[in-house]
Simulated scan of single mutants.
Amino acid sequence: MGTGAGEAGRVWAHVGQRFTETGYDVVVLGAGRMGTACALFLRRLAPDRRLLIVERGGLPNEEGATILAPGVWTILDVPAGRASEARWVNAQVAGELGPLPFQPRPLLDLHAGAVPGGRSTTATLARFPEAAALINPAALPFARVDEEAATYRPGSVALACGQGAVRAGADLLLNTHAHLLPGGVRLDRLTVTNTHEVVTHETREVRAGVTIVALGADGPPAAEQDLGAHTAHGRAYRQTPRLNTPSDDRTPTLRAGGLTLRPVSGGFTLIPPVHHRDPQGYVPTGGRLTGVPVGVRRETLEDLVTLMDALPPLATEALEVGRSLADVPGAWLALPGGRADAPPTHEEVAPGVHLLLGGPLADTLGLAVAYDLAARVAGVEGRPWEEG
């Protein structure tokens, strides 16, 4: 029997729970921020549609870019003409989705040359003394301030949206690997042996009227390999080193040379810029610092070294570089259209199969694009950020 409107959905967390369903109106692959948000919005817009969320791990997805996303909302990242979407996303995260860790926190955008709206970095730091020890004003004399900026945890958004979707009637199948098929999906339910190997316990095919592929960087390859579809999307491996320089609730988020320093847990998480897509088959390789192997990939290390004069703490032991890639958190990030500056998007890559991608600008526009796809699938006209 299907889940009716107003009834909570069912959750299958392990193979001991028998799964016998054979078809759904909509199947969403991926329980990251984009997939769970799309599922939640679709349940709200079309509560009569039977919907299943499939996730290889748990809720939220532990292996994708959602967990390591910056969680920095800033109007400075918004493409022209999309400010209303971004403000709608801000409102969703700030309260509409429920009580989430959301902190208004100004962002200082630092530059070596003059920029529109910029002012003296020295004068700006008088307002933000907590950041003064991090910055060399002589190397970065110009600063813009986004007073509306905020920080949050995308993983908390994914969890809230996933739980909300289940409460609204969506079913959730965890620890399951999905393969795209024409008209549906093949589901491999995974289990762990006593030697800690992940194996397929059982396989089932499920029909789907619509399949939404929200697998992050794994989405385009899945569509290409399973369905033979062609996409122009790419991916890049982005790491998030830590800088153990003190921060607190008053410390602003900093950005210089494309590098974002996000205050987290008394220090900073470093979000390096994404310059380009990584080539097919590329395997991230650690670099060397003063001849010693480190765990930060070479491209990221070059960015950090370039900024050491402008941000002096980067040249100290406060920067964690690790001994291998395993020591420095990182994840594959989808690049819509293969571009590092492209906003989130969705596209129908095969009849009834929609690819949903967040990418580098998911913090500011991701939820709006997820809603847009949900509205399209539901056949709903108009978008809430267009009202008024």
Rank of each mutant, 00 (worst) to 15 (best):
E7C: 05
W12A: 06
H14G: 06
V15T: 10
F19P: 00
T20M: 07
G23R: 11
V28E: 02
M34G: 01
C38G: 00
A46S: 10
V54Y: 00
P60D: 03
P79M: 05
A80G: 04
A91W: 09
R105T: 15
H111C: 10
A112Y: 14
P116C: 01
R127A: 08
P129D: 03
P129W: 06
L134G: 02
I135H: 07
E148Q: 14
T151K: 14
Y152W: 13
R153H: 15
R167Q: 08
L172A: 02
N175E: 15
H179V: 12
P182G: 07
R189P: 09
L190I: 10
H201N: 13
E202Y: 07
E205H: 00
V210N: 01
V210M: 01
A214K: 00
A214Y: 00
G216K: 07
A222H: 01
D226T: 03
A229T: 04
H230C: 02
H230I: 01
H233N: 08
R235V: 04
Q239G: 13
R242A: 14
L243E: 10
N244Q: 15
T245I: 09
D248T: 14
D248H: 06
D249K: 04
R250N: 12
P252F: 06
G257C: 12
L261Y: 14
S265V: 08
S265M: 08
G267I: 11
Q280V: 07
G281T: 00
Y282I: 00
L289T: 08
G291R: 07
V294C: 14
V294H: 07
R298S: 09
T300M: 09
L304E: 06
A310S: 12
L311I: 15
P313H: 05
P313K: 11
P313E: 03
T316F: 12
V321C: 13
A334D: 00
P336A: 01
R339W: 10
A340I: 07
A340T: 09
E347S: 07
E348C: 04
V349S: 01
G359E: 04
L361M: 15
A362E: 09
L365S: 08
A368F: 09
V369T: 04
R376G: 05
A378L: 03
G382K: 02
W385P: 05
E387V: 11
